[in-house]
Amino acid sequence: MAITVVAAVILASTVVQTTAKEKELSVTYVKAPLNIPSILQKRLKLVEKAFPGFVVSHPELTAGPKQTAGLASGSVDVANCLGGTSAILAYANGVDLKVVGIFARSPKAFTVLAKDKDIASISDLKGKKIAGPKGTILHQLLVAALKREELSVNDVQFLGMGLADGVTAMMNGSVDACLAAGPAVLRSTEQGARIITTGEGLVDATTVIAVRGELLRDDPDLVRRFMKVDEESVTLLDSDRTRAIDITAEETGLSIDDVKTMLPLYDFDSTIRPSDVEELKRTQDFLFDNGMLPHKIDIEKMVKTI
């Protein structure tokens, strides 16, 4: 009898622990440069309202590798606003993730900047020093822009550097040009820098919504419910733009005018279009051709429309 009671207690404890785990939902929070849907989801508690009874957390993991590490460990369920480069690299290295939606497309928000008055086009960058974050959408933009002018990264001096450090180096003359996105572009142009090119026609600057593969297999309805939350946040942006802009300005520290200036650069429709899949394939080619991807993956298997 005692053994039976002990076994029952252990079983009950296991059920409680499993139930508690199933009632947790971790959605990463990346607010910069202008991730309005994510901002609205957190500030207005849209996820919490859609998942009553769940303990919802919003870990601020802004770096792509940290988001994918969270997916791999199970500490993150949804990577909201994950760079396409990070998703592909993680998947190729065995992380069980699925891309279930597009967070944003923002080609015009990604730029190559220069302050030197003698640099007016990408072709003028030949032999020049260019700073920017390696293995990112911005790096991909630079490669594509050079290729359009029949140049390659071997024709310039590309210095791997964080976005903020790269902008500072360009402004103080340590490098000739830099890669920049978001508010950094506004601040730099206000101080005399010029946009040499944006990503328009070169890269779609796609960020994605990714989930743990196990979560999608075990509970696809939960993932669908989250995607409805994303749709709701985009609808709120469209239906009450003034409120959304005010909340975004408060959350990011940007001025309302800055938010209004940057907003038209972003397409937050989460629908996965055929063009999005093709863009992810181009991103994979960029990573592989530049020695950052160990082997190519099947992009269609990484992407899951639900």
Rank of each mutant, 00 (worst) to 15 (best):
A249K: 00
A144F: 10
K129H: 05
R282M: 12
F110E: 07
P107T: 02
L138F: 08
S57H: 10
G253M: 08
L25D: 09
D77S: 08
I122K: 10
T62E: 15
E190F: 01
T242Y: 14
S73A: 15
V175P: 09
A177P: 05
K260Q: 14
K126P: 01
I256E: 15
K98R: 13
F158W: 07
R224D: 04
F268W: 09
A120F: 02
I10P: 10
A145K: 03
A7D: 15
K128Y: 04
M1L: 09
V156I: 13
F286I: 02
M161L: 09
S255N: 09
T19D: 14
A32M: 12
L159E: 13
G199D: 06
A63H: 12
G162P: 13
L40G: 02
T62P: 07
V112S: 04
E250Y: 06
E250Q: 12
L237I: 03
E279Y: 08
P133E: 15
E150S: 08
I102A: 09
S57T: 12
V229G: 10
V277A: 07
V234S: 14
V99F: 03
T18F: 13
L34R: 02
A50Q: 14
L254G: 04
V277L: 14
I36S: 02
G135P: 03
T19E: 15
E278F: 05
F288Y: 12
